[in-house]
């Protein structure tokens, strides 16, 4: 089974990026790490590959010449990686991202594509669904459990009330929710092997995708400020201040 896991490299959240007031783009720090939410997809992919004699290929679109985050996922055990790097993709919107990723997925060939439900820095939350539509396959989204059997895939899909059991034929795409499996830590051996694993780097021209941007940030304004109120050290009476506040808010 050919399992493709879409993983995103993001600026290290410990090192936050900022908005450039001139270009209205995110100015990213140089550091690129594996998006934490994508570790769950990688883990799910590895488990399915182990159970179904599969391979795990990472697919990632990101800044030119940065592979730190990809190496993290390779060190977990993924077999290979396809990276799409192109200057013209800076500031790409969700639709362009999905077009690029699905073109790379199609080129590689797949039985199952795994995504996260939303990325930590972009969180548009629609790239997986867009990819599925472009690939002409089902998107089984917000999975808390994934099972592959025969030529089908069945998931537990998180809902606001609980969960639904949803099933579709392969090839298909699933998005997995964080916390469903415990992502493994790379072993020393894994880290060493990661350097030797095959990686392929593609540009937009290799994929024949139309890069258009249909949205533009036109301004960034401060939000109506929520002023911090009183902060008081508890010296045994803290609960009384809370009671007072609850009375003030007329809930007791």
């Amino acid at each position: 089974m050919r399992i493709l896991v879409c993983v995103k490299q993001i600026p290290d959240p410990a090192n936050p990026s900022r908005f450039d007031p001139e270009t209205h783009r995110l100015v990213r720090t140089e550091d690129q790490i594996l998006d934490d939410t994508d570790r769950y997809g990688v883990e799910m992919g590895l488990r399915l590959a182990e159970a179904h004699e599969g391979t795990v290929t990472l697919v990632s679109m990101g800044p030119v010449g940065r592979a730190q985050g990809i190496r993290q996922a390779l060190a977990m055990g993924a077999d290979q990686a396809v990276m799409i790097e192109d200057e013209t993709l800076a500031g790409a919107d969700a639709l362009t991202t999905a077009r690029v990723l699905s073109a790379a997925v199609e080129r590689t060939g797949f039985d199952l594509v795994i995504c996260g439900p939303e990325s930590t820095d972009g969180y548009s939350g629609v790239v997986p669904q867009m990819m599925a539509e472009l690939l002409g396959v089902a998107a089984l989204t917000y999975a808390t459990r994934v099972e592959v059997s025969g030529d089908g895939v069945t998931i537990h899909r998180q809902t606001s009330a609980g969960y639904d059991v949803v099933t579709a034929d392969l090839p298909a795409l699933v998005s997995v929710t964080a916390g469903v499996v415990e992502p493994r830590y790379p072993t020393f051996r894994g880290i060493m092997q990661a350097r030797q694993k095959p990686t392929e780097t593609l540009e937009v021209s290799d994929l024949g995708v139309d890069v258009s941007v249909g949205q533009e940030v036109i301004s960034v304004v401060p939000a109506p400020e929520r002023t911090a109120g009183v902060v008081a050290e508890d010296e045994g009476e803290g609960h009384l201040l809370i009671l007072e506040k609850l009375q003030e808010a007329k809930v007791i």
């Binding site: 969700a94 639709l95 548009s124 539509e133 989204t141």
Partner: peptide, 19 residues
């Protein structure tokens, strides 16, 4: 909503602004 919006955006070839 997100499932439908994402697929609709592709069908229409239009961007969708989230959040």
């Amino acid at each position: 909503d997100r499932d439908v919006a994402g697929r609709l955006a592709v069908r229409l070839g239009l961007p969708v602004l989230s959040n």
